[in-house]
Design a binder for these strands. Structure first.
Lengths: 146, 146
DNA sequence: ATTTATGCAAATCGTTTGCAAACCT
DNA sequence: AGGTTTGCAAACGATTTGCATAAAT
């Protein structure tokens, strides 16, 4: 719905492959790597239809430009993607495991958000930056790796 | 000093090339990309001696393992490095310009740090993660790009 | 003397791209 | 039909690695 509109604004179509990608990202609670996305998409795709990597990359780039998905700053060497927050409805940050590379979502706390927006204001004042987004990673070891 | 000790702990030597790298990173107030590091190192290196990329990568990897430098999560496609915070003495976060890719340091505010450590505690409790570091990027447009 | 680091060139690996065929409206 | 997306294979570019030589202890 929203997705189709956003793509249309850039003369882009909402095709079967792209639907599969958006569904996969909509069904998870953490950012996925390309291999993970491909595996999940191929599992949910009809018949023997396999989505090639190149198409996934291209489609995800298109979806990112349309503001449907977001490409994360690489914590390891694999790119990760998640649904845009205004579509998933959850403002969140990430827990990053230094041992296995896992990235998990963690809900943002109001207190943290307040402190953050103040920090943004201060930074803007002192440096001339115009801050309009932020990114927080809590880094450590996941339950499995501890 | 500290640097030599940390390297020695891993049976690593503090050579001229590595000194040049550490000096370069010690002389700047923002994380540098490999090309930037090479340019600066070569400027400060004696005679016609040029530091090859591969050596820079290898040495920076060694320095990172020794906890002397830190490799940043790639905001764009270039890796960035900075001196470890316990050597530079400044706990800071980053301003990232989405337009030109600039990454600038910004001092951490006590309020933000407090909110952050609370968030870490909550996350630990709810997910079993052991949080021992964090990473904050304020994303926007720098003064030049606005 | 030994062990570790360096230079160079070649290899890797994630990601991007050219082009012709398939798809959507 | 007319423009867009897909698949495949080839191209890219940042980072890594093998190996012989130089440097450090």
């Amino acid at each position: 719905m929203q997705v189709e509109v956003r793509l249309a604004a850039l003369d882009q179509r909402y095709t079967r492959g792209r639907r599969a990608l958006v569904e996969v990202l909509g069904d998870t609670d953490r950012p996925l790597t390309i291999p993970e996305i491909l595996e999940a998409a191929n599992r949910s795709l009809p018949g023997g239809h396999r989505l090639p990597q190149s198409s996934a990359y291209r489609s995800l780039t298109a979806l990112a430009e349309a503001g449907v998905v977001r490409r994360l700053a690489g914590n390891d060497d694999l790119g990760r993607f998640e649904l845009a927050e205004d579509l998933s409805g959850h403002h969140h940050h990430h827990l990053v495991c230094t041992s296995c590379g896992l990235v998990a979502d963690v809900p943002a706390s109001p207190r943290l958000e307040r402190a953050l927006s103040e920090a943004g204001r201060v930074a803007a004042e002192e440096t001339g930056f115009e801050v309009n987004d932020h990114r927080i990673d809590l880094v450590g070891r996941c339950a499995t790796c501890r």
